[in-house]
Design a protein around this nucleic acid. Sequence first.
DNA 1: ATGGCTACACATTGTAGA
Length: 256
Amino acid sequence: MKLVTWNVNSLKVRLPQVFQWLEMNPVDVLCIQETKLTDDKFPQTEIEAAGYHVVFTGQKTYNGVAIISRHPMTDVQKNNPLFEDEQQRIIAATIEGMRIICAYVPNGQALDSEKYPYKLSWLAALRDWVQAEMQTYPELALLGDYNIAPDDRDVHDPAAWEGMNLVSPPERAAFQALIDLGLSDSFRQFEQPEKTFSWWDYRQLGFRLNKGVRIDHILLSKPLAERCTSCVVDRVPRKWEQPSDHAPVIATLNPR
DNA sequence: ATGGCTACACATTGTAGA
């Protein structure tokens, strides 16, 4: 069982790459963020024609999330029922007995932006909802673009980033609050190469110089964490022509 | 030096991303 999160930065632009990547990587569940498509423009027919199930919720220009799955999905939930939000940033479904939550956490922009308190309150509400979901679904995976680098190891130059958005103590505390629910950062369950990141700036040769941050994560409840055998970042599609600025993160789980 | 790149929209510049 392979679970993936990938911020594609426009599904309209990246759909051919998503198909190419899925051909190379026959995974079970692919959580996508930043589709940037309203539901009437979502490529549902194409994805289903390729043999996948798909659920999605989007808006114009910004945000938008989707789950592409080899297996049928039930109990689809769009957005956090505990948090009024016009922005389409969450979709969840039950797949093969697992609760899969696909989340696009607000960026926050900067610590003095009005988007920063929105990010923190959004994360607090996410924590509360995930806590409730874990009571119903012991097998739960929270996948997405968290827009948080949990640790200095997750930043190419921690000194340069100190006190910035993505690494600030309140954001890291919000990430830890999710861990404290009993979730495991699957990436950190294993020995990893140093300076492994999931996002690189398009500018300043960010990818070539590996000036990145690890902000895309797969958090697993205990029954899933115990079955997890690896978690890796796939840098390959970041090298393609016209790439997303994010790379996919893949967690592999043993069968029950 | 708040620049640099990419995507999007009531587009030819402004906003957002991270």
